[in-house]
Amino acid sequence: MKIIKKIGTKWTVVLLIVAVLAGCTLFDLIYAQSYELSYTYTAKEGYLSADSKNTVTIEVTLTRNGKPVSGHLLWMDSPTMILDGERVSGGDLKVNQVATDENGKAEYTYYPYTANPKFKPAGVVDFSVRDLDSSIIVEIYVQEKFSLDLRTGED
């Protein structure tokens, strides 16, 4: 009560709101940190290439304390790359959101862009996947970012 009198009711309310928000954020942060995302990939032709026919299967695994987590909805952003300093499309995914199976795995199909020497040479494509169910209050998700280096043909 002394503190309220000292700093006034208005500031007390403001501080309480800030404290609640910080608490929520901290809770979500800790909650999200308990999850872990990892990935592996296999290309149809056995190597990565900037060719949309050479589809790449990306398998994402979600675990919590080392155990697979099933039934969580994962969202992978459409892949992008940097070209002339600007972020542009880096190909296409069959779907962006996939639910994890009983082994905590979600399988994505990635269609690389086809290298176009004039406009878009083979290059590094950036991916980002997050677990939409790993946040409870303020939408802080566990997230994994990775890149695939596309080459022309088997180079």
């Binding site: 070209l83 499309s89 878009k120």
Partner: peptide, 13 residues
Amino acid sequence: DGTISATKIIANE
């Protein structure tokens, strides 16, 4: 957001 960027790439070139 870069989801449609082909026409931008073409315009830049």
